[in-house]
Design a protein around this nucleic acid. Structure first.
Lengths: 149, 149
DNA sequence: CTCAATTCAATTGAGTACAATTTATTATAG
DNA sequence: CTATAATAAATTGTACTCAATTGAATTGAG
């Protein structure tokens, strides 16, 4: 009767913590594979959008990745230096900066396809559990799942 | 027949991405509440361990939070400056640094209990979904769930 | 038209993360 | 006992992450 409901403050009773820890652990699992491509994890997911779209504005990329220009501007400048993308102001609206994959960036895609395959072997979840986790995470993110691809 | 299996490289087919995005979004949801306590998210989870254990070494704290001394040393120094913890070398083994909650740190616990309650209202998942997500994340982290608390 | 509001990137500053190295301390093989 | 190995923090350097601010370009109300 002395202690109140401090149980809610225990780390093991938090949902946020395994989410935070798991996210970082997964990024670490990607590292050895991404090192071979000389990409960081953030650069990798940015390239995923670019391989799919060819050209996007910083704003669109940010909406897709949940990142803002504070993160993306320096990231994209490094990717430009590496020759993976070009950065150019839109002619229609010069406030927009258009990022486009170069041929070098496009060629990297061929080596990158191996990454998801190699990572799949490191996962401790079954396919069904992975699917379920996917659905729950997107629900938590507040978006409709686009699983039915 | 021209395109190969590039579908594996689509952002929407990744499990890692919603994990990464969700983790950051949740930390953002905590921010307004943690701001009132003048804690960052990382400081908050470190305090959770300390509220539970009273005293831990940097090594133990790191194992619990999946963080290393490179992250924890500056974090704990800031927490010491704020008067939340003390940092002292262990007498038994001076390689170990023992972190202990101060009275100020202990008092913060009383205000912190509100945080999980207020966050709970922001979640888009049902209790069952939350539990399921929790189990899946711990399985992915490669630890046995300690849910049966 | 024209100036105030809006939009988009860039910048700034604080705070992590983490790999790799260094330093101090303790354990251990010979 | 002593040189070596192992361990724990701290340090260093790179790379995000994000809130807040700034500045240039565009929009829109009057």
């Amino acid at each position: 009767m002395d202690k109140v409901e401090y149980g809610v403050l225990k780390l093991e009773n938090q949902l946020c913590f395994p989410l935070y820890a798991c996210s970082r652990e997964i990024v670490k699992r990607y590292k050895p594979f991404l090192d071979k491509l000389e990409l960081t994890y953030t650069q990798y997911i940015a390239m995923m959008v670019l391989w799919e779209r060819k050209s996007v504005t910083v704003k669109e990329l940010g909406e897709r990745l949940y990142l803002d220009s504070g993160t993306l501007t320096p990231l994209l400048k490094k990717m430009e230096e590496k020759g993976l993308v070009t950065r150019m102001r839109s002619e229609k609206d010069e406030r927009n900066l258009v990022v486009t994959v170069t041929d070098t960036g496009e060629r990297l895609k061929e080596r990158a396809v191996e990454v998801p395959l190699q990572i799949a072997g490191c996962t401790k979840l079954t396919a069904e559990e992975g699917m379920l986790l996917y659905e729950l995470l997107y629900k938590m993110l507040g978006k409709q799942s686009s699983q039915g691809k």
